[in-house]
């Protein structure tokens, strides 16, 4: 070996083979394939957004205000076609979700992260919440149908008025509840122990510690979670179909804050989109109407999503 290595020729060959600049073809190919996976995904997203916006110009470009003011119609050429009822229903659903799911979800997260003893019962609740988050949304619709419409349990249908915005809102509140608990719980876990110990050190009780230290510190994280779950609730359609959201004829809009109208029949933006898309097979004009409704829905949903992402990135950076 040594004699061979000392051979000048082979030494030169070894030096050349080490110093020669080689192109790692396979590595480059691999990287390009990975990049194209991402590019295809983003291209699909771009095509989706462009298609929807292009299709929507027939409605949004020419009669934006009428479209926002109009109601459900059976023909797409109707002058009074629009999404007012859908926006109205979605707004109320969002309010009901905020009122029901956020306090209960954040409360449950506080209990699980701050109070609950580490025992079997607690881990049962935690596993239960994780499994609930994986249940398909249409199954929540079945729950709403049994619980709030048919009154099989507790006779709740008398309270909700059967198929109503209230039923839809409660169903979606139940749907997003596990998401709120999980995201808030993550925010609580990120609170540094020093803050807690400091509060205990000056004589705070557990609740005083949570109220003055944990909640303020976790507030951006909680807000991120609630924004994401609100976006999810506003875009969800399957459970609403099951609880009987209306896609055909529907009475005119009641006043915006007419509480009694909550127990009347209702519709929501995703339901309007679904109905118009399905009808586009028989009346092509509904394609533009559906696309226009999608643009309106996306404006709301993407605004909430990007606010959540920005908020999270900002605080992650700040706190390192």
């Amino acid at each position: 070996m040594i004699s061979r290595l000392s051979d000048d020729r082979s030494r030169a060959a070894i030096a050349a083979s080490i110093e020669r600049r080689r192109v790692d073809t396979r590595g480059l190919l691999f990287k390009t394939i990975l990049q194209s996976c991402l590019l295809i995904t983003l291209a699909l997203l771009a095509v989706l957004l462009v298609t929807v916006v292009m299709d929507s110009t027939d409605q949004l470009g020419t009669r934006l205000w009428d479209f926002l003011q109009g109601t459900l119609r059976s023909r797409s050429e109707d002058d009074r076609l629009g999404i007012h009822q859908g926006m109205y229903g979605s707004l109320w659903i969002a309010i009901i979700v905020a009122v029901l799911a956020f306090p209960i979800g954040i409360g449950a997260a506080v209990y699980l992260e701050e109070y609950a003893p580490r025992n079997r019962f607690t881990s049962f609740i935690e596993v239960n919440i994780r499994n609930l988050a994986g249940v398909p949304s249409v199954v929540y619709g079945l729950l709403g149908l049994a619980l709030l419409l048919n009154g099989q349990i507790f006779g709740l249908d008398r309270l909700t008025g059967g198929s109503s915005a209230l039923s839809g809102g409660i169903t979606l509140a139940i749907l997003v509840l596990p998401i709120v608990v999980i995201t808030s719980g993550e925010a609580f876990r990120a609170v540094p122990i020093e803050l807690r110990e400091g509060a205990y050190g000056v004589g705070a009780t557990r609740w005083e510690m949570i109220r003055t230290q944990v909640l303020p510190y976790a507030a951006p994280g909680i807000l991120t979670g609630t924004l994401l779950s609100m976006a999810r609730a506003v875009g969800e359609a399957a459970p609403l179909i099951l609880v009987g959201a209306i896609s055909g004829r529907l009475g005119d809009n009641p006043g915006l804050f007419d509480i009694s109208a909550l127990t009347d029949q209702f519709t929501a933006l995703p339901i309007v989109i679904t109905s118009w898309t399905v009808q586009s097979g028989r009346d092509v004009g509904f394609t533009a109407a559906a696309a226009a409704a999608i643009v309106v829905l996306l404006v709301f949903v993407l605004m909430m999503n990007s606010a959540a992402i920005l908020l999270r990135n900002r605080f992650e950076k700040k706190r390192g």
Partner: peptide
């Protein structure tokens, strides 16, 4: 900027994908 772009895609409601699947 790539991760937020993917998160935007994650936030698109399924009715929008339904429309896209049928019309495009």
């Amino acid at each position: 900027w790539l991760k937020p772009a993917l998160e935007i895609l994650a936030g698109i409601p399924s009715v929008v994908l339904g429309f896209f699947a049928l019309t495009w």
